[in-house]
Nucleic acid binder design. Structure first.
Lengths: 227, 227
DNA sequence: CCCTGATGTTACCGAATTGTTACCTTGATG
DNA sequence: CATCAAGGTAACAATTCGGTAACATCAGGG
């Protein structure tokens, strides 16, 4: 969770403000008041992300950016600058920066942008929905229960996917038919029951007393994943 | 080199302008005039980057963004919007967007930002991939199994390459056709089966009980390299 | 022009899914 | 308590889907 951020900024007040903000979000913060120090730290401490002012004494931001990339380092670099001429922005991005934020900037937005980059570089453990002892992996098209994979048929999977996407909502039979079977197909209403029954048999602890897929008499069903 | 970009934007003039701009830079451009179409294309054609308007008819940009991420797709998403309140920006970024660009924007800057993301995701360090007793050498375009080289036809290789690049994911037949055969060619869906069958014969320990290339009935296939 | 290998198509088979029908259980209502 | 409607479920049947073999087509090379 904790990432290391390097902030290179020559104005002390701003540097302090940025440092405190990121530190309060739980980041480990390195700071540098000038370009030369910034480049040193970037190379020696390999931070996960760099916030880089452009107008710096001694070595400017563009040069740092290029130097970092030339060394083969690939951490995201966010440029902070008062220059917001389009040419400057394009130049910065082409030199290997990932974002270019014009001063004055909003702190919340800056943090959100930094988070977005850090999120991306973090390894993903496959997004999945969890409910009870089940885990639904949409990308892999798999369902696990207590670690073991459960085989679902196409209809069952589509139905469960629909339930999960509308969890907590009462779902009318019409709506389910429309979403899972498609509005052109004509089937008896019992087809839903049947599919629900097989799905319950596979995911409910006790299919006689369903907790996840609840029946709402006269309406349809509701999927309740619990907490 | 050529990347595929999906642009979701409901204002025809702007959509046209964006399309022309990116097309002239050599990108393959997909367009969608509304959210529902956009989501479909994002899921079925797996573009390398998405430009997403927020205010859209039917399904709004935030929902598309979330739905795409829930499916485990990780292409960069750039949000375009007239809203530039800080809360909106933070919301968008937290939902999995990578950049948030306020209208009116500058075209050159937009292209530069898109390029920056594509440059980053294009980093392909993997020159070889191992699974079971097989080793796929992408650079040399060769497949070895237990040290001996296995001859693959062009289609088989391309298919395996695609499988490897999307390992662990459920791959719809449409998506496979699109990626391996190309979206313009029209072939029967059985051509995929045929190619899968010959590939299985070459890489599976027991082609009758495939472990690497798994069939997902009604959906397509999934490549599972194991550990 | 013919041979060869790759690739696509057609046809058939077997298996699995899925819809239907029929019957049963449950719960609401008067 | 009787009745009725809705949902649960088992058994069966039909359909659909994928695997595969056999054949067709096409391109390239000699």
């Amino acid at each position: 969770m904790s990432a290391r951020i390097l902030i290179v900024e020559d104005e002390p007040a701003l540097l302090r403000g940025l440092k405190d903000t990121f530190a309060s979000k739980g980041y480990e913060v390195l700071t540098a008041p000038d370009g030369a120090t910034g480049l040193d730290l970037a190379l020696s401490r390999s931070p996960d992300l760099i916030l880089l002012d452009i107008m710096l004494p001694r070595v400017n931001g563009y040069e740092i950016c290029r130097a970092v990339r030339e060394r083969g380092l690939e951490m995201p670099i966010l440029m902070l600058t008062a220059k917001d001429r389009e040419e400057d922005i394009i130049l910065g991005l082409n030199l290997g920066a990932d974002d270019y934020i014009a001063k004055p900037f909003r702190l919340g937005e800056l943090v959100a942008r930094a988070n977005a980059f850090l999120r991306r570089s973090r390894t993903k453990p496959a997004a999945a929905f969890r409910f009870g002892d089940c885990e639904l992996d949409l990308a892999a098209h798999k369902l696990f229960r207590g670690g073991a994979e459960i085989e679902l048929t196409a209809k069952e999977f589509k139905l469960l996917e629909y339930f999960v996407s509308r969890r907590g909502c009462a779902l009318a039979r019409d709506a389910i038919l429309d979403a899972v079977w498609g509005n052109s197909v004509i089937v008896t209403p019992r087809s839903i029951d049947r599919c629900v029954a097989t799905l319950r048999a596979k995911i409910e602890p006790d299919p006689r007393e369903p907790v996840y897929i609840q029946t709402i008499r006269d309406i349809g069903y509701r999927f309740e994943p619990g907490e």
